[in-house]
């Protein structure tokens, strides 16, 4: 029974932004399950509602309709059962690396000695223990994201929510981070809901890729990625990888063609 329950369960989720007198439908009736211990990615065009989706699962913004459950428990507000990594760095600029990672534990009343042990473990996991006394502003973008990951892992959430965590990094750093994340994830065995607009990143990292349509977000297709782990970067060159990639690319681009066809019809007519 316990094994059957999905880590995240979303039913008929809907989100309408009401700003002024205009309503924007961002998410339209999305239902999906994230199985325990799996790495699931959402890909979709920019502005389709991916961040909105994660922010609702995180409890940071209110949904318009539907239900979100984490291990069967309905989400109402933010909480440490879900570890969120935001699209931009949310590290506290006035705290050094160590204190940033330790803060969640401090808030939850973990004693100081225990705190140090945990922080040390995770900073070593992301290979940044030597940088524990640095301020976030003294780190590179990739290092900052690794600290963010350590901070989230440190308070031991049931699930990880990651919103384009490598979106701002250069291609090389991004690939390094993907390998790094896979290593860390396989050690932690957590369920992950990962958002990206990078198809290859999604295929490389995921057990399952969920393709979102343009706004309002609906699910276009769900694709299981059947590669063994651990995966290394040479996977990028395999033909099966390219098949997955091309298939998802087509799904995302069919979407873009639709309005173009209808416009040309109007012009012709």
């Amino acid at each position: 029974m316990k094994n059957k329950m999905p880590a995240i369960q979303i039913e008929n989720l809907r989100k309408v932004y009401s700003s002024g007198n205009e309503d924007v439908l961002a998410i339209q009736d999305v239902s999906l399950d994230i199985p325990e211990g799996k790495f699931v990615s959402i890909v979709g065009p920019s502005g389709c509602g991916k961040s909105t989706f994660l922010h609702i699962v995180g409890g940071f913004i209110q949904k318009t309709a539907g239900t979100v459950r984490i291990r069967g428990k309905e989400v109402e507000k933010p909480g440490p059962d879900r570890g969120m990594m935001f699209q931009e760095s949310a590290l506290f600029p006035w705290k050094n690396v160590f204190d940033n990672v330790a803060w969640g534990l401090e808030v939850q009343g973990v004693p100081k000695a225990k705190r140090k042990e945990i922080v040390e473990g995770f900073l070593k996991l992301v290979r940044l223990w030597e940088f524990r006394n640095h301020l976030p502003s003294q780190l590179s973008g990739g290092m900052r994201q690794r600290v963010s990951l350590a901070r989230v892992l440190a308070f031991n959430p049931d699930v990880l929510l990651m919103d384009e965590p490598f979106g701002a990094l250069d291609a090389q750093t991004r690939e390094e981070m993907q390998v790094e994340l896979q290593r860390i994830w396989s050690e932690s065995q957590k369920s992950v809901l990962f958002v990206t607009h990078d198809i290859e990143e999604a295929v490389f990292l995921s057990d399952r890729v969920i393709v979102f349509s343009g706004r309002p977000a609906t699910i276009t297709e769900i694709i299981d990625i059947k590669f063994d782990r651990p995966r290394d970067l040479s996977l990028y060159k395999s033909s099966q990888f390219r098949d997955y990639r091309n298939h998802i690319w087509d799904l995302l681009h069919e979407e873009h063609h639709k309005p173009v066809t209808s416009t040309s019809e109007v012009v012709n007519g």
């Binding site: 590290l91 969640g104 308070f155």
Partner: peptide
């Protein structure tokens, strides 16, 4: 949001 996420 990050602080609320950590349970503050």
């Amino acid at each position: 949001w990050a602080s609320q996420n950590m349970g503050a």
